[in-house]
Structures are given as C-alpha cells and as structure tokens.
Design a protein around this nucleic acid. Structure first.
Lengths: 216, 216
DNA sequence: ATAGAAAACAGGGAAAAACCCTTTTTTAAA
DNA sequence: TTTAAAAAAGGGTTTTTCCCTGTTTTCTAT
C-alpha cells in the first residue's frame, strides 16, 4: 500500500471498450485512480453532480454523440475551472487542436501515443498544469506562421446545399429538393467556391467531407 | 491464486495506447492472459516465431500500416490454423465483415462494444469455436438476401484514374498526368460509371472513398 | 419609415462533363 | 495465323457546370 495520494481521473469517451480498457491502464500508473467514465458530455454533467468527489483531470474524447468534446469543453470551462482537461482523440486536425486549447484544454493527446506518454502527460499536468506534445507544439507554430486558418462561416442553407452536393444529384435536382431556383443554387455554389477556394464540385465535396459537414 | 488454466491472448493493433489498455482489460478477465501485442501483421509474424508459446486467440485490428488485418488473416489461415482469430475493429462495413469471416476469422467485434461482450466473445470462442454478435449475424443475412455484393474488379489504370478523379483536376488534366488521350480517360470514366452504377463524377468519388480506393 | 445588407433570383455565354457510337492498335489466345 | 478481347482514341451531341453580371425581395437596424 502506498501512502502517497492517488489523483482522481475521469474518462469521457463513448467507446465503452476503450474507456474500460483505458481505465485499467490508468489505474496501473503510480498514484492515479479512475473515478468513473462517462459516455458523453451530458453523462459527465450528471456524474459530476452525483459523485461527491471531483476529478483533478478529465481525459476527454471529441467525437461523441449527444454532447461532443467541444461543447463539453466549453461547459467545463464555465462550470469547473479547476478540473484540468486533457483531450484524448483520434483527430489530429489543426483547427480542432487550436479550438480545444483556446477553450481551455490543458493538453491534446492523440490516441495512437505510447502508454508511457499518457503517464507522462498526466504527471506533467499535475505538476506544471499543462502538457504539450511535440506534435501539438508543431501545429501551433504552423498555424501561427500560416494565418490562413480562419475557418469560413456558413449559412444554414449553404450547409444544406453542401450536404446535397455530396451526392449524385445535379444542381437542378438539388434546387428542386430545396425548393429554390437553380440559379439560386448556382449562387450558393459560386459563393462557396470562392469562400473555400475550390475549383469545382469535386473540390467542394472533398471540403465538406474533410470538415465533417457531410458524411458518406 | 486460481488453479484453472489461463488462456493466452495476443493483440494485434497499431495503436499502442489502445493495445496496452486492452491488455489490462483482458488480463482482468477470469482465466485470460495477454502474452504480448504486435503493431501489425509483420510484427506478429516475428513475435510468433520469437515466443515459444502460441496464443489460443488473436484479437486482430484491420487498419494497420505495413501489413493490415486482411493480409494477416490470410497468412494466419495458411500458417497457424489452430489459432482462433477474432477481428476487433472500428470498421462495420459489410464487405469487410464477409471478407474476414470467409478468410477464417472466428468472430467480428466492433470496438465500441461493451467490455462484457468482449469477455463473452473470448469465452464463447474457446467453448464453441466462434462468436457471432447480433450485428454480424444481421449483416450476413442482409448480404444473403441482397446478392448485389459482388464487388467489381478494377484494372490498374482504372484505379489510378479513380484516385486522380478524387481531386479538383479536370479529366483533361488527369489525361495529361496519366499520359493518355482525354478520350481514353473518357472510356475509363464510361466503363466505371456503368460498372459502379453511378451517374456522375461525384458518384464515382463517393464510391472510391467509401471503398478505400482513394483517401482524402 | 427607410437605407443598407443579405438572400433569392436570373440571363448569357464558355468550359467541362456526360453520353453514344465507331475505329485503330495491342495483347493474348486458339 | 486467324480470332477475340482489351486498351486507346476519335467525332459529335447534349447536359451540366462554371463564371460573370445584374435585378428583385426580404430582413434589419437606426
């Protein structure tokens, strides 16, 4: 039995197999103890209420149903400033990294890291208050130098259109489906091409898929 | 200390965090013991040689660098018939399920299952020799009823073309890049449209992405 | 109430994509 | 060597896409 204090961790991930497995791993680290895990942000909110003990660190996934990592991060930042959040996800998208860090995440880890790195991250987060891997540092620098990362904003109908554009429908058929004139659709198309700096419909489709606007 | 025999498991997954975590979970099950884990098929081949003990069950991921789950399955089927392979992956694609099962996998599990299901699968695989979840059974039935699943076969150049079609290049530019006449490209396009039953280039792009012919 | 902005709508014209049918060249097989 | 099949091109037409430039409608803020 060790006399040193065990630090409480909470895991938020919708994949229960991964969460359960990770729990065992974290428990095997020195001085770390998983309190519980939550399926998503909403579930976490409930459990933070139900349990008397608060975690020191939350390991947070991004892609989750009901309430995803981004929403959860915002909520935690508002309501539980003391809890340190480490993002643990598959997504290595620069924009997402930046978004989460600027929302108050103390670190960003990719799910394919070595277990030792996770241990290191947990320890450092307690000691220094944050953990930044080389990869994340790189991304940050890169985004500073190329200040093109201003993500465009879309109107509702533009998003509807983009989703439909990721199909075999012609623009005329899309116009029909959206109850708009083909020329209006042509306007959306044009605006999007300019905004996203793409040359043709395939470019638009690729953009929509890359940015999770549409799924196939 | 339990006197019952512990059954040896091997995990094959390129995500070392997941593999390490899963190892802890499997070790926590009754009568199961993880011998080691491998990063990919090639790594597994080496380790099967190096270790005197063979596993009874291998938990196999599909998406891996160097030597993926499909190749690995084939090799195991040829060289280690006695080892029972359970596929453990994110991919719920019907074609992949069928491919792996027909290659000799004893079960197909999705990574978002509950830990108890994994335990159940391991036990059943030892007892009955296989494990089939409801989801997989469904897929099998579905594929029987809709016998459209005959995947078309592609020529080398067709695949090259499809990859290039998943970009903003025009057909003329693609022809240039492939050192062919635009008319030849038009022939490829026509054949593919017929073969894949798609109406236009967007349809082709979606097909190529869905079937991992091209990635974005 | 009204100016200004955003959204919807639209015409003309050029380029690309899609479609269909035919021909030559290569390759492989009988 | 003839035959057949596959690969590569060509000609020509229709449809869709793309791009530029406008007008009308709708909403919103002062």
């Amino acid at each position: 039995m060790n006399k040193t204090i065990s630090h409480n961790i909470v895991i938020v991930d919708d994949h229960s197999l991964f969460a359960s497995s990770l729990e065992k791993l974290v428990n095997s680290f020195n001085n770390f103890n998983v309190l519980y895990h939550a399926k998503n942000g909403r579930d976490l909110q409930q459990k933070l209420k139900d349990y008397s003990e608060l975690p020191e660190i939350i390991l947070l996934d991004l892609n989750m149903p009901v309430m995803d990592g981004f929403e959860t991060m915002e909520w935690l930042h508002e309501n539980h400033k003391k809890i340190k959040v480490l993002v643990l996800t598959m997504e290595d998208d620069e924009g997402k990294i930046l978004k989460m860090l600027s929302n108050g995440a103390k670190g960003y880890l990719l799910k394919d890291i070595h277990p030792d790195k996770l241990n290191e991250a947990l320890v450092q987060t307690l000691e220094k208050g944050y953990y930044h891997s080389e990869k994340v540092a790189e991304s940050l620098l890169h985004s500073l130098h190329s200040n093109d990362t201003e993500k465009p904003t879309f109107k509702e109908r533009e998003i509807d259109f983009m989703k439909l554009a990721c199909s075999e429908m012609t623009y005329k058929e899309i116009a029909d489906k959206m109850n708009l004139s083909p020329k209006t659709i042509d306007g959306y198309r044009q605006d999007l091409f300019n905004k996203l700096d793409v040359k043709n419909r395939v470019g638009l489709v690729i953009y929509a898929l890359k940015n999770d606007i549409s799924k196939i």
